[in-house]
Design a protein around this nucleic acid. Structure first.
Length: 475
RNA sequence: CGGGAUGUAGCCUAGUGGCUAAGGCGCCUGCUUUGGGAGCAGGAGAUCGGAGGUUCAAAUCCUCUCAUCCCGACCA
């Protein structure tokens, strides 16, 4: 059992890109900073989509679609919003062979176009709440890109809700935050910490931002999902008012929230090893690969047996039958491991004679002969065990690299190490301390934790501590 | 967008002014193989990132440009 994650302090970038390219998840494209998602990568995205979409719909959200192009003037309406997004906009200046009088931006996020429509749709408290989600692509002209983690164009879901009361909108923000966290833990097997963002880290245009954050194998932190309470900011700039039950005119309260194809990058960085990708069973597009090993003289018998195993398991699981004898068995074993398939079943003449098959789990490398007639009942518990083991070991890895330093010197030395990890520290709530921390260590406040500070004074400034925060170096 | 590095076949690399650009992996063909990335033989595949320049001669030197990686600033 290799029940731990090996930290990666060197060459993690090459290691990460290697896995994506070799497992054929994505490729660079001729377009600057944009990636091509290959079928294997896209299948992971579809698995993420279908689970999240189900969760959103179960809590009353509906899917809709809004235009890719947004009038440039829309995005200029909200001061913080434009300040946050202006540097990374792609702008369309020509159409139909002519220069446009008013340019369009390609959406970096859809708050503005959606709220321009909400103005037309929302007039009464009876129109609320309005709970919409859109699956779409967006563009942000980032300075530095990396496959899945930060690309110029990316796929995501963005939820945009409108509510009659502040409390209801805040509850929605929390509710989605919980959905994201549950999804990361239960489906991605990726342990996340979560909480409110500091003022300087929150979304451009939000009142409050909550995020889930996950520690990767090189000790850096990835922001895996965000849920924003927007207050009445967008309602005011787009003048979206409704008549309440009591007859008064009031501004609508809003939330927005999203996760992107970055989740795939996080999934890779959280779980993969030197053999390649490792996908959690609940998301893996292929859960089981059945590999037939045969010679010419045993071909018929082995293929018949492999087919019967495939037919049986396919009823309950996502299976692939590999009968390709053009490659050697060793090559095929290695290839299925590179692809991250959680369970591999070897079936050959030797197994048929013993009336069993060899079942190998990707997470630990463990191989066991399982009697043929026990196979059907053995798979489901094994998939669950893999799912649980992946989560537990990622959680253990995170906890091993979460520190509670006693003083600022210790904190700085922790972030100078090869695996920076997290530090939980008392903070005075001041921007100046936050900035000092960033200048000294490059680490930032990832989240404000919902717990009392470990000590009464801020580790950075020495002033009285107001909050308990978790800090780390972000991607 | 600043500092640094790199760019040679699908991938990795050799070649630092001079003959037909070299090797490994992969790919194709044939035979032998098949329980942890098989062996032998043969074969295809390169406007040396792109443009311009210097030179009798450029993958090699110069200028510009594009892309990627690393370090900063920015971010899902």
């Amino acid at each position: 059992m290799s029940d731990s994650i090996t930290p990666r302090s060197k060459d993690y970038s090459n290691w990460y890109l290697d896995i994506i390219l070799k497992a054929k998840l994505a490729d660079y494209s001729p377009v600057r900073g944009c990636m091509v998602i290959r079928p294997r990568g896209f299948a992971i995205w579809e698995a993420i989509q279908s689970q999240l979409d189900r969760m959103f719909k179960e809590s009353g959200h509906l899917n809709a679609y809004f235009p890719l192009l947004i009038p440039e003037e829309y995005i200029q309406k909200e001061a913080d919003h434009i300040e946050g997004f202006a540097p990374e906009l792609a702008i369309v200046t020509h159409g139909g062979g002519e220069k446009l009088e008013k340019p369009y931006i390609i959406r970096p996020t859809s708050e503005t176009i959606i709220w321009s429509m909400y103005k037309q749709w929302i007039h009464s408290y009876r129109d609320l709440p309005l709970l919409l989600n859109q699956w779409a692509n967006v563009m942000r002209w980032e300075k530095r890109t990396r496959l899945f983690l930060r690309t110029t164009e990316f796929l995501w879901q963005e939820g945009h809700t409108a509510h009659a009361t502040k409390e209801e909108a805040q509850e929605e923000t929390q509710h989605i935050f919980e959905i994201y966290k549950n999804f990361a833990h239960n489906y991605m097997a990726m342990y996340c910490i979560g909480g409110k963002k500091s003022e300087s880290e929150k979304f451009a245009g939000a009142v409050e931002t909550y995020s889930i954050e996950s520690l990767m194998q090189d000790g850096k932190v990835i922001q895996a999902g965000t849920s924003h309470f927007l207050g009445q900011n967008f309602a005011r700039v787009f003048d979206v008012q409704f008549q309440s039950e009591q007859g008064s005119q009031e501004y609508v309260w809003a939330t927005s929230w999203g996760v992107s194809t970055r989740l795939i990058g996080a999934l890779i960085m959280a779980h993969s090893d030197d053999k390649g990708l490792l996908l959690p069973p609940r998301l893996a597009p292929t859960q089981i690969i059945i590999q037939a090993i045969y010679r010419e003289n045993t071909k018929n018998e082995v293929l018949t047996c492999a087919q019967s195993i495939f037919d049986e398991l396919s009823e309950s699981f996502r299976c692939v039958l590999d009968t390709d004898a053009r490659h050697s068995p060793g090559w095929r074993f290695a290839e299925s491991e590179l692809q991250g398939i959680p369970i591999r079943i070897e079936i050959g003449q030797k197994d048929i004679e013993k009336n069993s098959c060899l079942v190998s789990r990707r997470d630990t490398g463990e191989k066991n002969a399982i009697p043929r007639n026990a196979l059907g009942s053995a798979i489901a518990p094994l998939l669950n065990a893999i799912q649980t083991n992946m989560f537990e070991r990622h959680k253990a890895f995170t906890e091993e690299h979460t520190h509670t330093p006693d003083n600022y010197t210790e904190l700085k030395s922790l972030f100078e190490g090869p695996i920076p990890g997290y530090c939980i520290i008392p903070w005075d709530g001041e921007l100046s301390s936050e900035q000092k921390l960033k200048e000294d260590t490059k680490a930032t406040i990832r989240a404000i934790l919902d717990q009392p500070p470990p000590r009464s004074t801020c580790i950075i400034s020495g002033r009285p501590a107001k909050q308990c925060v978790i800090v780390g170096k972000a991607y």
